[in-house]
Each structure stands twice: as structure tokens, then as C-alpha cells.
Design a protein around this nucleic acid. Structure first.
Lengths: 345, 345
DNA sequence: CTGAAAGCGCTTACAG
DNA sequence: CTGAAAGCGCTTACAG
């Protein structure tokens, strides 16, 4: 049958089925096809049905390149994931993959496509997907240690108002962050409530990563209420986060043999702390308690399962999209955090 | 200066800077701009430089919608990540995020963009990004339990030759898989070499997920060489993978009190096994050894760190791209696997 | 309610 | 080596 033949030909896609083919089959003009398919209210339901039938028989799909070119929109959000030059999938911080997943989800629920670009901060940086007509807005995530990378994306942000960061070393600009201060207090309060008094802080607070400083401040303020003093390390080795956690746990225990708990300012750091303590034969949470920060899925799998501060990543994704696509100007937007109690505290 | 003003206007992107603007500024025709920018060899180096200068002064970027529409190409690969209906970022299998990351990387190294779509297998399925002119090929990853989802994507695959699966329940079709059989043998051989003799298999081999069956077969064959018998469970509860692992470890130990090791056919299952054994006070690897499968990053973080079979995900990504973009017909393509020894065995 | 026509911004034969 | 022009497949004023 002709029907079947055309259907096959259409779906194989070469040559491309266009709205003119649908129009011919439905016995209407091409503009009517376009209107019927886009749900224009001016089209008669009878006409619409004939068009829909013809389109489905031919396996017709609107060409997004053409419609986007015509309308000037893309219905797409670009996500740049910044990575360290030597990152592989196995070493890169899984937190950003979790956040990426939430952005994809949030975008899908708004009928947006997601264009993902992993970029090494030392490689060729590119972020002007909007200028290229590939996206309506851009979200940059990832924790860059390379300031060239931040400089590049910051300039991009200055030129356009559709670029939003997750975390950035700058105090201005369009960005979304966790409520780090509240999280720091939450973690510390939890440890205090559990009876730990001498609590060490694990995290590089001398860096450009302001989230650590904010978490540290929450920790200090909560300790101060009890008249307790912070215990932290001034310097960190040039190691990965897990290694830094191990190192800090070791040093802090030497510095403060009476230490009873650690608040690690990221889950990756906390994993290092956990490893160090277990190798030292310390019982967790009996002798020493540990709380992390990030709410990573793998925290539930490690041993003991890690108590952590979990930012609401779905909310974060929603806010990022509002900034990038709706161009909402948030003054200093924060994703709420919550305490997830597991067995390490 | 005029220069600066135009530059600003251009970068702000409204109204859009086109190749006609660049042409005017460079004193050439629009077609010459296009040729110069695309690297056509017929352009004089002098002309090219003037065009490049004008383009950069205006902050000009080629509009991808227009160029793609004209050429019929997209330089984009679509990746569909299938998820269970109730999956959140925290419960979904991180393996697929690792694979997704590798695909993004491999695509970038081939100058392809990556369009990512997370889809719930019970929701609205869509995969015809090629038909829409949004991608040149499509990769479907994720482990669907819902056969409707597979049916949909299989039909898509039948209609076009640019859809490739990672793992699928079908015995035909275009797909890439791990070398599961070799991995099963590798894991089992490793446990035997370590001196474990009574080795249990953890994994649902009665399901449509053929990878478990293939791993099981490798396990059986390797045991047989030593005259040993397999120990496995016929049924699995309707739980998540970690829960299934816990359940299996418990049952298997009741069934075979002499059991000395477990080969868990996925890392998620292995995490459950680890949890169950630790709660039972079993010392790993002294009393019981454990090997997983998938090479997940979180395996290095759990306690004890998990010995596992790691598929070469970068190679897998390369093969998937060859199938989707280059339309290479692999008969039954396998990503190589290797043994990663950590402390659980 | 529907059609004919313009135009989104490119690439690429076709001329010269 | 460069230019004028056609055309990729749509959407949307503008008419009727």
C-alpha cells in the first residue's frame, strides 16, 4: 500500500519529509500544516485532524533547526561542566554529575533540551552557546582551580545576562550557591547535640573556594554559642579532596589528641577522613563522629554511611534555570540545605 | 571609538550580528566571509585576515541553526538516559552517569556536541532527535526494566541506522556491551588465585538483563576448571540493587555456611553484600572476599575499598559514537574489561 | 479560517 | 580568487 511505502520512506528520513509533503497529502497549504502542528487556535478541528493524520503517516517531525532559526529561540539550555585538566570520569567530583542530572531533569520538565559540554579548565574554553544560536542560556558548574577559566566565563557573563554559575570565586555576578553558612551551623549543631564537644573542621579555608569559608563560619558561630573554640588547619597539600581529608584528619588528631568529631566541608573530604580514622583503628561514631557536606549518593554506600548536609539540588537546578533562561536576577540566591543523619555521627 | 561600540553591541547579541555585518566591515561579500571562516583554501590569506579581524571586532559567531539547516548536518549526538520511574539523582545508578561523562568526553574530542535527555521509562519516551534535525545519531543508555521502553527504542532502531544501545535485552540490533563473559572469568579466577574456593554468585540471572547471565557464565566456566560448583540464588526480591545484594548475601550464607567469597555481578549489588557482611561482623577480606563489577568510582571510597571488574568506558564511548555517528555496523561489539584489585579480596 | 510570500542566517554550486 | 543568487525548512505577518 501507498500508505506503508510512504511511511517507511518518511521514517528512514532520506530524503527528508517536510511540511510541504504533509501539506500535499492533507490537501492543505504548508502554512496550514505549520499552524495545525503548532496548535494554533485558528485551525478547524477537522483540518487539524487531517494534518495530524498525514504527518503521522509520513513520519513527519518538525525540523528544529528550521523552526529555531525562524523564531530565534532554541528551547535549549547549555551546561558547561568544568573539570581539572587531569580529571577522568573516575577522579572527577561526582557531585557535579549529580547536579548535572538535576539540571537535565529540571530542564526536561520545562520542555527544554540540554546541551552538555565537559571542558577541561586548561583546554579550549568555550561558553558562548547563546551567541552561536545553540542555547537560550548557559549554566556553568564545576569547581575550577584555574583562574583563567573563571576569568573567561566571567567575561562571558559580563557581556550577556544569560550565564549563571554554580559557585564561583567572585562576590558579584549571577550565581546560585548552597546555603553554606546554614549548613555549617546545622552540621555543627548536630554534632554538639550528639554530645561531641571537641570538633575539628576539615576543609581548605585559605582558598578561593568561598563555600568552604562560609561553611567554616557557620561552624565557628555555632561553636561560639557553647563557648567552644574552632580547630582547623591553615594549609592543605596539593592533593585530591580525598587525600586532603586523610591528611587533615591525621594532622588534626596530632594537633588535638582529644578531638571527638570532624565536620568535613565536603563529602569527598569526609571520605578521606573516614579512611584515615578506620586505618587508625578508631571506632566511628563511638570514639569520633564525622559529618560531611554535599549529600552525595555514595555517602550512603560507604562504611559507616556518612551523615551529611544535603543541598536541595532540584531546587538549585530550578534556580539556575531561572537565572539562565528567564534571566531572573537573584541577588544572592541560595539552595536550601538539610541534615541527613546516617551512621557516622 | 566606533570599534568598541560595535564590539559591545555585537556581544550583547541583540540585534544579532550576521555574516553580512562582518562582510560590510571587512569590505568583502557575505559569501567570502562564510568561506574565510570555514577555512576554504580558495581564500587569500590577506582577505582571510581582514575577515577574521572584522568578525572578532564584532564578536561574530556563526549561527549553528542556520549552518546546520543549510548543510543538513548537526555535529551533535543525542544521548538518552533511561531511568526508573521513581529514580531521583540519589537513587539512580551512578554507573550511567559515569558512562554519560565518557560519552560527552569522546564526543567533544570529535568536535561533536552532546544533547542529553533523561527519560523515565514510564513517561513520554522520545528518541527521534535525528528526525527532528537535532542530532546525527542517538545513543540510548540505562537499564530499563520496563519492556515498553525497550520496544519503543527498538522500533526507532529498526527505522533508522543511527541508534545504538548500551546493553539491551535483545540479541540483535546495534549495541555495545561490556565483555561480560571475560569479566566473569576474570573475577572468579582472581578469587580462586587468592585462595577462596567456595564462591557464591550474586546477581539476578533470571531477568532480561543478559549481562548478568553472561557474567554468571564466565563465573561457572572458571569454577568448572577447578571442579567447583556454582552457588547462586534463583530469585531476587523487587528491591533496589543494594537491597538485592544484602538479601542475596544473607540467603547465600544460610544456604552455604561454608561460603568464602562472593562475586557480585554489579558494584551496586556488591555494596549491599559489603553492608550485610559488615553488619554480621564478618571480616573482609580475611573471612570472606568480595569482587564487584562495573569499576564505579565510589567503589574506591567504600570500606573496604571494593575489588571490581572495570569496563573500559572510554573505549565503550568511542564504540557507541562509531555506531551512532559513523554508522559502523559492529556485529557484537564489546568493551574490554580489566580487574581492579582493591582491599575487599 | 486559510493561503501566498517573506525572511531567519547560513553554505555552496554557478559565473566570472 | 571572489560575488550574486538559490535554497535549507520552517513561522508568521499580511491578505482575503
Amino acid at each position: 500500500m501507498g500508505l506503508v511505502e510512504m511511511s517507511d520512506a518518511g521514517r528512514r528520513g532520506n530524503p527528508r519529509v517536510t511540511s510541504f509533503d504533509v501539506a500535499e497529502r492533507a490537501g492543505v497549504s504548508q502554512s496550514t500544516v505549520s499552524r495545525a502542528l503548532s496548535g494554533s487556535p485558528s485551525i478547524t478541528s477537522g483540518t487539524r485532524e487531517r494534518v495530524l493524520a498525514a504527518a503521522s503517516e509520513l513520519g513527519y517531525q518538525v525540523d528544529h533547526r528550521a523552526s529555531q532559526l525562524r523564531t530565534g529561540k532554541t528551547a535549549t539550555v547549555a551546561v558547561v561542566v568544568l573539570r581539572r585538566p587531569d580529571d577522568t570520569v573516575h577522579t572527577s567530583n561526582p557531585f557535579y554529575f549529580e547536579l548535572l542530572g538535576c539540571i537535565c531533569e529540571a530542564a526536561a520538565s520545562r520542555d527544554l533540551d540540554t546541551l552538555v559540554s565537559l571542558q577541561s579548565e586548561d583546554g579550549d574554553l568555550f561558553g558562548d552557546y547563546v551567541g552561536r544560536g545553540q542555547a537560550d542560556g548557559t549554566i556553568v558548574i564545576g569547581s575550577a582551580t584555574n583562574s583563567d577559566a573563571w576569568a573567561y566565563f566571567r567575561e562571558l557573563q559580563d557581556d550577556d545576562n544569560n550565564v549563571v554559575f554554580w559557585g564561583s570565586p567572585f562576590d558579584d555576578g549571577r550565581r546560585v550557591r548552597s546555603d553554606n553558612y546554614a549548613g555549617g551551623r546545622l552540621a555543627t549543631r548536630h554534632l554538639l547535640d550528639r554530645g561531641y564537644r571537641r570538633i575539628g573542621f576539615v576543609g581548605p579555608i585559605g582558598t578561593r573556594h568561598t563555600q568552604f569559608v562560609e561553611r567554616y563560619k557557620g561552624y565557628c558561630d555555632e561553636l561560639e554559642k557553647e563557648g567552644l573554640k574552632p580547630v582547623a588547619l591553615p594549609d592543605y597539600p596539593d592533593d585530591d579532596r580525598v587525600g586532603q581529608g586523610r591528611h587533615a584528619a591525621r594532622e588534626l588528631r596530632q594537633k588535638e589528641p582529644e578531638i571527638q568529631a570532624f565536620f568535613a566541608a565536603s563529602d569527598q573530604l569526609a571520605f578521606g577522613v573516614l579512611q584515615e580514622l578506620q586505618e587508625a583503628g578508631v571506632s566511628i561514631p563511638d570514639q569520633i563522629g564525622v559529618v560531611g557536606f554535599d549529600g552525595m549518593a555514595s555517602g550512603a554506600l560507604c562504611s559507616p554511611p556518612l551523615t551529611t548536609i544535603a543541598p536541595d539540588l532540584r531546587e538549585a537546578a530550578k534556580l539556575l534555570l531561572q537565572g539562565a533562561i528567564d534571566r531572573v536576577e537573584h541577588p544572592d540566591e541560595r539552595a536550601p540545605v538539610k541534615l541527613v543523619v546516617r551512621s557516622s555521627s
